[in-house]
């Protein structure tokens, strides 16, 4: 690919919006994902992503702009599913599978019946950089700052709840409340990232950068920072690739995330690399 091509591409406002969306939603996914993965909420974020399509189809059905419906829908959905998982006697992975496959099934059928935009289904499923507006990008930026503040202020509770609920309660953490708020924040992040990323792959944004960071990081602050940084970096690179190659944006980002994850796997499994890191740490410290 000649250099001029992508420089030219960067001058289009849609591409600038897309890159910012990649930066923000990738960063958000990594940031929140670092805690979500420790909480074992990977499947839950998958269910949230799939349900977003149900929210969109509801919007289409009601004749309302989907983004308006999406956030309240996602929050409500997250709370209901959270309760379902907590109260049910079935294991959560099985339950969440039922939730996300049926959400997807209902949504696809509704969209086919109601809307004539059959072609847009693929964009909803896999993300569409042309669909990102300045309003979306601004909202994502604001949300990124809000989530950062939220995690910094509740860091202690987040870690204790992830480790052991009993220990957290004994230290005065309102565990049920903390879980509820986290799930709501996750739902809002998913709802706001869905346009650029697509319904099917949004959970990868939450899971993959965080897992790569989890393999490498030594301490908690470093872990969260690395997960956010990797998420943001993969988001930008993936969307750039999507624009250049005219491919769907969600899969492009996820492929970049996969490459980063594989690199993390190699580094963490390689004793020589680990030793080099330790030497470097020693010098830095």
């Amino acid at each position: 690919m000649p250099t001029a091509d992508w420089l030219e591409l960067l001058q289009f406002p849609f591409m600038q919006r897309a890159l910012l969306a990649g930066l923000f939603s990738g960063g958000l996914g990594g940031l929140l994902g670092s805690v979500a993965v420790l909480r074992q909420l990977s499947f839950f974020s998958d269910a949230l992503g799939h349900s977003a399509l149900l929210g969109i189809s509801l919007g289409v059905l009601l004749g309302v702009e989907p983004t308006v419906v999406l956030i309240p829908f996602a929050v409500l959905f997250a709370l209901l599913v959270g309760q379902l998982v907590e109260r049910s006697r079935l294991p959560s992975d099985a339950l969440l599978n039922i939730v996300y496959s049926s959400s997807l099934a209902i949504a696809v059928v509704v969209l086919r019946l109601v809307s004539s935009r059959a072609g847009s289904l693929e964009q909803l499923l896999f993300g569409d950089i042309l669909g990102v507006s300045w309003r979306d990008v601004t909202l994502q930026g604001v949300l990124l700052l809000a989530v950062l503040a939220y995690l910094l202020l509740t860091r202690r509770s987040q870690i204790l709840v992830s480790l052991d609920a009993g220990l957290a309660v004994s230290q005065g953490v309102a565990v049920a409340w903390q879980r509820l708020v986290f799930v709501v924040v996750l739902a809002v992040v998913v709802a706001l990232s869905i346009k650029a990323v697509g319904v099917l792959l949004i959970s990868a944004f939450v899971v993959i950068p965080a897992c790569a960071a989890r393999l490498l990081a030594r301490g908690f602050g470093g872990y969260v920072a690395l997960a956010s940084g990797l998420g943001a970096g993969c988001g930008v690179l993936g969307l750039l690739a999507s624009g250049l190659l005219n491919l769907p944006s969600g899969p492009c980002v996820v492929i970049v995330q996969l490459l980063v994850f594989l690199a993390a796997l190699l580094i963490s499994a390689n004793p020589a690399a680990a030793a080099a890191r330790a030497r470097w740490r020693g010098r830095a410290g």
Binding site: Q40, L163, A213, R218, Y223
Partner: peptide, 10 residues
């Protein structure tokens, strides 16, 4: 306290 998988907390 059961810690599942690598937990990046010293």
């Amino acid at each position: 306290v059961v810690v599942k998988g690598r937990f990046p907390l010293t």
